[in-house]
Each structure stands twice: as structure tokens, then as C-alpha cells.
Amino acid sequence: MTIFLFFSSVNPIFEYLFIGVIFFLAVKVFLSLILNDMPKEVSSKIETSFLFTLFLGIFFYSILVYLLNILLGISISDYESILFPYFIFSSLFLGTFPVMEIKNVLLKAREKSILEAYEKTSKKISSVLVNILLLFTFPLISMYFFGNGSMNNLLILFFFSILVSCAHWIFVFPKILKLKEKKNKS
């Protein structure tokens, strides 16, 4: 805690960088653990694509939050300490599913190409992720309409958080896998 307080007293930006570095290292460890039974070449491709998708997600979400602030006046100053951990946790939870599915296909069918493995299971991944998106949205909808309204701005930001991460795992992740495969072939 003293280190954290030191960083935040120097400049609040260091507070975020410090947490960001911890998240990055933790995700690296997490991925290497769940992909430890895969060949190193394959696991490193998945790891890189996963991290890149996550970073793009954070980047895109930050822009979206900025636009929501300008267009709808939704300020995040009161919520930022909840918002970004929520985004990262939900995004990691959603992202684990496609990774585990690809891993299963690769292990079962002895496929060599990650992209082929993804394509084999892409329909299932999309359908599951859309349903999970729905399940994450139900509490937001009920809180928005039946809550006392004081959390509504935060609920809107949560909704976009889950929407952005879901869209990233369905659309951006395979694109990055494709790019990674192409780059490796060339």
C-alpha cells in the first residue's frame, strides 16, 4: 500500500500505470498457465493476440468513455476506480472462453493452424458470447429501470464496457489471429 500511495502522491497517472503493470503481468501468468499444455509457438501466438485484443479493447473503451463524456456529459471522475477494473475483469472473463475453445479444438483435432481452429468453433463462440452479453446486461437493465437512478451513468458505462469487450472477442480477436498467422507464414 505504501508503494501505491507513493506512486499516487507523485502523480495520479502513476497510480494507473502501476495497476496496469500488475494487470499485464497477471494476465501473462494466467495465459501461460492455461496454455501450458500447448506447443510454445502456438501458445505465444494466442497470448500475443489475447493481450493485443485486450489492449485494443481498453483503448477503444477509453475513447468511448471520452466521447460519452463530451456528448452526453457522463463524467467518470467519480467512478474511474471501479470502471476500468470492471472492464478488465469482464473482458478477461469473456476472453477466456474463445481461448479455451481454440485450445480444445487444437488438442482434440491436432489442428496446426489456430485460425482454422477458431473458424471451426467461431459460430459457437459468437453464440455463447452473445448470450453471456445478455446475461451481463440483465442486472444493468433492472438497476437502470428499478433502481433509484443515482447509478444510471455508471450503468450506461458498464453496458458499453461489456458491449465493447464482447465485440472485441467476437470480431477483433479473430482478425488479430489472422494477421498473426499471415505474418508468421510470410
Binding site: F138, P139, I141, S142, M143, F145, F146, G147, N148, M151
Partner: peptide, 8 residues
Amino acid sequence: SLISLGIA
């Protein structure tokens, strides 16, 4: 909040 989470 508790009522709406129950509804959820």
C-alpha cells in the same frame, strides 16, 4: 438497488 437486483 436490492429490489432491482432481485428483479435481475
